[in-house]
């Protein structure tokens, strides 16, 4: 028996949320006295496997080969099913990110495993069963999901757990998984892939998010926000109004129909604070608002606010950080 973590990666670069889950998986495994297993699918899985071990995994199952070169939901799900069997998984943790979410859902349903989606905290009850905390009703209600059967499975949002320390001296075993893919996997043909222009940090992994709304007035209006984000090593987010206007692509959208973020610092610039936007960002540790309307509802969720024109305040803030942090 073991705890299994689905280690999502891009060409061997492990997503931070995967390592966060390796860290939490390690804690659960230690409590239960079980080994921690990881699954790495695809090419360059050797490097990803080494990272999983350095961060806490005891044993890594890898699934290399032509069938897994590019993401295919069904093939990856069947690999996860095979790993759940091989690892005799009692608890399975999967990052709640695009792609991995489908893999978790397809595998769990096929094996009739209960799956708690988009969790933000995990613990164990006295009997060693998983307790999975998750927001429902778009963050307006929280519940602790309990399971009636085993294995028990959860997808977990980025930044729900701290990144574990990397210990290069840690050792672990790596083995190749044997998988008999079903004919259904052949149905899913990936004809092309267009890599997104990769930005240094994505909005859901960032510890600092600088977000802009209709108040930035146009695509150029995001430039000062990017500058501030760069100085702070953060990412740029947006309201739906800015995304719908075509000023910034959808992956930046924060809110109910966008991403849910929980950075240490969220700076909202020219965003009014509609309930659907708040659904995506009120779990930020500190919220700062820059808005020229002192009655904008977003001030109600903020710790600090500056009433003023963002085109004046944001560049000044960038300069103030540059000066103070010597960057």
């Amino acid at each position: 028996m073991s705890i299994l973590v689905y280690t999502d990666h891009t060409e061997g670069r492990v997503r931070p949320v995967s390592l966060e889950l390796v860290g939490q998986g390690r804690a659960l495994a230690d409590t239960l006295g079980l080994p921690l297993t990881a699954l790495v699918i695809g090419d360059a899985s050797g490097n990803a496997a080494a990272q999983a071990i350095a961060h806490g995994a005891d044993h890594v199952w890898v699934a290399p080969g032509a069938a897994f070169t590019t993401f295919r939901a069904q093939a990856y799900a069947e690999a996860l099913q095979a790993a759940i069997a091989a690892a005799e998984a009692r608890i399975v943790l999967v990052p709640a990110v695009a792609g991995a979410r489908d893999v978790a859902a397809l595998a769990a349903c096929a094996l009739n495993i209960g799956l708690a989606a988009d969790c933000t905290n995990l613990s164990l009850d006295d009997a060693g069963n998983l307790l999975a905390e998750r927001p429902i009703y778009s963050g307006n209600i929280v519940t602790t999901v309990t399971f009636r059967s085993r294995p028990q499975m959860a997808t977990v949002r980025p930044r729900s757990f701290a990144l574990p320390e990397r210990d290069p001296a840690r050792t672990g075993e790596i083995s190749e998984l044997t998988i008999n893919l079903s004919p259904l996997t052949d149905c899913e043909e990936v004809l092309a892939f267009a890599a997104a222009q990769t930005e240094a940090v994505s909005v859901d992994n960032a510890s600092i998010v600088i977000a802009g709304g209709r108040g930035v007035k146009g695509p150029e209006g995001f430039a000062p926000l990017y500058e501030l984000a760069q100085v702070l090593g953060g990412a740029v987010g947006a309201s739906r109004a800015a995304v719908d206007a075509g000023w910034i692509p959808y992956p930046h959208q924060v809110g109910q129909t966008g991403k849910t973020v929980r950075p240490d610092l969220y700076i909202a610039c020219g965003i009014s604070g509609a309930i659907q936007h708040l659904a995506g960002m009120t779990n930020a540790r500190t919220i700062v608002v820059i808005n020229k309307d002192k009655d904008a509802p977003i001030f109600k969720v903020a710790q600090y606010g500056i009433v003023g024109d963002l085109f004046e305040i944001v560049p000044a803030l960038t300069e103030a950080f540059r000066a103070r942090l010597d960057r």
Binding site: I136, G139, I141, T143, F147, F299, I306, L317
Partner: peptide, 29 residues
């Protein structure tokens, strides 16, 4: 296979927003 237990409101966000005042944007920031 699952139960929703302890269904609750999330802890209220205790915030009293402090407005940063100042004569100029430079002072405020």
């Amino acid at each position: 296979l699952l139960d929703w237990t302890d269904v609750r409101k999330p802890p209220a966000r205790v915030t009293t927003c402090e407005l940063i005042s100042g004569a100029t944007a430079v002072e405020q920031t």
